[in-house]
Design a protein around this nucleic acid. Structure first.
Length: 844
DNA sequence: AGCACGCCGACT
DNA sequence: GTCGGCGTGCTC
């Protein structure tokens, strides 16, 4: 026996005492990972996907996510130690890390930016500098004279154990309080330390229960009641308590207690009696951490949805396609009941033990749809909405990690949630432009991210739309994705009748009442007489997009952006829709003093206003960004309309999605033209989608609906397509043009926006960039630079360079690298300072 | 993104 | 003469 063998100890039993290192993702726009040293005692605790605390730079302490653990000590710098392990278990899953890397690479941003967008704010910890009294400081021994400002800080620190820098700044009302802090530090009056505030706060409920001594047996309890026989008020409280919590049946129930609220808010009980009972130790108070998404009481059996024969066969076709394809498009007209098909498929996935993500555009995620899903999936359903508080987000996040939520219905950002075993993704309204995030990075499209998630999880994706995007339909046509049609309206509902009104002709005939054709007004009156409802769509908020002076043609412009200011009558303000700048509407023209300032064009607010005059009996509600800012206002407006407390709903895009109103029989599109002539290669596709979506609001549940489209030019093929419900016609035309003029899906577009506070350098930088890109990638496919339609936003001039890349061929990675290098060089260049560059892959 | 180090105008 | 402006560059 050789000594080696004799003394051999299996490696599993005694871990090697090698120093481990962790590459971490900091939530910052930095292009690389940072390597920290793992203290030996933490060797077993630092897990990939968990958060750790590190010092970054000279003082800041931040939480970051571990991406990799390894043994390679960095050679060219000294790694700092990880300070603390925050999570015992990963908060970011393996598939998520893969996905985040893909997003960073595909959308040309940093992993830090992805993590930053992905994690709820409460999971991102960072330290704040605070000051407190120096432990050795005392007034007597202090030998330094203090200034008035310094005394002020000292005084504050005697009231409060510590101050944040901001608090100190506010206290002194000085912009430069730093020097005072410095001086106090030098005089050893204070010390500075970094504190990391816990941001997530669990929801705590105050409860009360009987002190355990009284609940040993029924006799003890009875004795207590006897003792309190003369204290009527206290007895009332106890009787209520045992009524709410039936101890007499089971003493063990006492431990759970009842919510203190249930007693204190009861008008028949005396608050002081409750407090006396607590004070005397009869009742004890305790805190319980509860979920912000309480489990529904009495969870019943799952409610199976009933599919119509058409829906059932669509479902079967989808499943059939899934045998050979990962992605299927369900092309179903409005009202065909796509949701039922989704629910059925989600149900199947859930029964098989998989997780499901159901994506919806923001405005389509309404209480209507959540209620419907809750009925089926009950407490296994999690909702992820942008109006959720950060604490709620953390609970959804953790609920997925823990397995509590199996189905998530959510908006764009729910693609970042920590799924570990997705088996199905549903992207409803897949054509929706709002799936694309514009600002800030990562400028991702949730539909594309969903497809990649499916890839990493080995899951299937179901896309759904009544008006699929041209790209998606193309992939179905080439056979890459499956296509299932559902073109029968569910129930007796029939497609609405669509009528065009030529507003130019009507105007000549003096048949227009401001922005309303007589036809539209008559039909609205009819509809209201029949006790039915109207939806009016106008794709512009505010009262008018601008005002102008009748005498000198002066138009108020935003001081920060290259746009005219919109007039908002309610607040009597001129507002910029791009930067938020606003001012009072002047009564006279600042240029010539004329009082003849008139509004030009019209938005939802003006429509609402004029409607009040035209139909004084009608109850009108407006739904746009301005009326839905408060958390529940959106819901309230929908509810009022649903309950027929309002008759006419005037709104922007918001009125077009996901709302089923039973009594709407007339839909009016006030001006179709601005939508059709939008300067974008997708304008026709978008216009078609919008018209079909709006029209879909009319005539559900057996009532034939009517749609009136007002236009200055009714002889456009797009209207024919809408009226005939001819999606294929639109698709054929669009795809041919996309091929001819090299647009997606035949090429990929990357938009590079150069921003600079001055016009000239902005242009010069953009020209330099375009030149560099041409040198690197060749002449074809580099377009611009040219200023965008709105060439200045928030005091930054803009120039755009578009790069078109062939979709086939493996040059994508190479081209992106070249772009990244070109941009990097531009930003390094000494010729251009104050430059900012934004890269947008697949711009919407 | 912070934050520190580094070079030019208005103040004790 | 200093204080302090914010322009550049680094952070494991």
């Amino acid at each position: 026996m050789t000594p080696e063998l004799e003394f051999h100890i299996p490696a599993d039993d005694v871990p090697e005492r090698v120093t481990l290192f962790a590459d971490v993702i900091l939530p910052l726009p930095l292009p690389k990972l940072f390597t920290y040293r793992i203290p030996l005692e933490m060797s077993d605790d630092v897990l990939v996907g968990a958060r750790v605390l590190v010092q970054f730079g000279t003082k800041k302490v931040l939480s970051c996510v571990v991406a990799r653990v390894h043994e390679q000590a960095p050679t060219d710098y000294q790694a700092k130690y990880i300070l603390e392990v925050i999570d015992e278990k990963p908060v970011v899953t393996g598939p998520q890390l893969k996905l985040f890397s893909w997003i960073a690479e595909y959308y040309m941003c940093t992993l830090g930016e992805v993590i930053n967008a992905a994690l709820p704010a409460a999971l991102k910890l960072s330290s704040e500098s605070k000051i407190q009294l120096h432990p050795q400081f005392s007034e007597e021994t202090n030998e330094w004279p203090l200034t008035a400002h310094e005394e002020k800080i000292l005084f504050a620190l005697r009231q409060k154990p510590h101050l944040t820098f901001t608090e100190a700044g506010q206290l002194l009302q000085l912009t430069s309080f730093h020097k005072i802090i410095k001086s106090l530090l030098l005089k050893e009056v204070i010390i500075i330390y970094e504190e990391i505030a816990e941001k997530y706060a669990p929801k705590v409920v105050k409860k009360v229960r009987l002190a355990p001594a009284f609940t040993t047996d029924e006799a003890t309890l009875e004795e207590l009641f006897n003792q309190l026989a003369t204290k009527a008020k206290q007895l009332d409280v106890l009787l209520k308590y045992v009524q709410l919590n039936p101890l007499l049946q089971d003493m063990a129930l006492n431990e759970h207690g009842v919510e203190k609220n249930l007693l204190t808010s009861n008008p028949h009980l005396s608050l002081s009696a409750i407090n006396t009972l607590i004070k005397n130790g009869v009742l004890e108070q305790f805190d319980v951490v509860v979920s912000r998404f309480p489990v529904a009481e009495g969870r019943g059996p799952y409610l199976a949805s009933e599919l119509s024969p058409d829906q059932a066969s669509a479902r079967d076709e989808v499943l059939d396609h899934f045998n050979s394809k990962d992605t299927v498009l369900l092309h179903g007209i409005t009202g065909s009941g796509k949701t039922e098909v989704y629910i059925d498929l989600i149900q199947k996935a859930v029964d098989a033990g998989g997780q499901v993500l159901y994506l919806l555009p923001e405005i389509a995620l309404t209480a209507q749809i959540v209620t419907r899903l809750k009925r089926v999936f009950q407490d296994r359903l999690g909702v992820y909405h942008s109006k959720f508080s950060d604490n709620e987000r953390v609970e959804v996040w953790n609920g997925i990690l823990s397995g509590r939520f199996q189905v998530i219905v959510g908006v764009r950002s729910s693609v970042f949630l920590p799924f570990h075993s997705l088996s199905l993704l549903v992207v409803d309204e897949e054509h929706e432009p709002s799936y694309k995030q514009h600002e800030p990075a990562p400028r991702y499209n949730a539909r594309e991210v969903a497809l990649m998630m499916a890839h990493f999880h080995g899951a299937k994706t179901l896309l759904g739309s009544a008006t699929p995007s041209v790209e998606t339909y193309y992939h179905c046509q080439t056979g890459r994705w499956g296509l299932v049609n559902l073109h029968v309206r569910y129930g007796e509902a029939v497609l609405p009748e669509i009528e065009l009104v030529d507003i130019r002709r009507e105007s000549l005939r003096k048949n227009m009442l401001s922005h309303f054709s007589q036809k539209l007004v008559h039909d609205m009156e009819d509809t209201l007489h029949r006790k039915e409802q109207v939806i009016l769509f106008q794709n512009r908020r505010g009262y008018s997009p601008f005002i102008d002076c009748n005498d000198c043609a002066w138009i108020p412009k935003c001081r920060n952006c290259a746009v005219s200011l919109s007039y908002h009558k309610f607040s009597n303000e001129l507002r910029c829709h791009y930067c938020g700048y606003h001012e009072r509407k002047p009564n006279e023209c600042p240029a010539c003093g004329s009082t003849m300032l008139k509004t030009v064009g019209f938005g939802t607010e003006k429509i609402e206003d004029e409607l009040k005059l035209l139909l004084p009996e009608a109850r009108i509600q407006r739904m746009d960004l301005d009326t839905t800012k408060r958390k529940n206002s959106h819901q309230q407006i929908i509810e009022d309309f649903e309950q027929q407390r309002t008759n006419i709903l005037v709104g922007t895009q918001m009125v077009t999605k996901g709302l089923d109103f039973e009594h709407v029989s007339l839909v009016g599109i006030l001006s179709a033209d601005s939508i059709i002539h939008f300067p974008d290669y997708r304008a026709h596709e978008r216009a078609y989608q919008l018209f079909v979506q709006v029209s879909g609001r009319a005539g559900r549940k057996g009532k034939p609906g009517k749609v009136i489209i007002q236009t200055a030019n009714p002889n456009q093929t797009i209207f024919e397509r809408v009226i005939e419900n001819n999606y294929l016609g639109l698709y054929e035309q669009e795809i041919a043009e996309r091929q001819k003029f090299r647009y997606p899906p035949f090429v990929r577009i990357i938009k590079i926006t150069v921003k600079h506070p001055e016009a000239k350098p902005c242009e010069a930088a953009a020209i330099a960039l375009a030149k560099d890109l041409t040198d690197r990638l060749g002449r074809t496919g580099i377009l611009g630079p040219e200023p965008p339609h709105i060439f200045k936003i928030r005091n930054l001039f803009l120039q755009e360079v578009h790069v078109k890349l062939d979709r086939d061929g493996g040059r994508l990675r190479f081209s992106k690298n070249q772009i990244q290098e070109a941009v990097f060089h531009l930003l390094q260049s000494k010729d251009f300072k104050n430059l900012r560059v934004a890269i947008d892959v697949d711009p919407a």
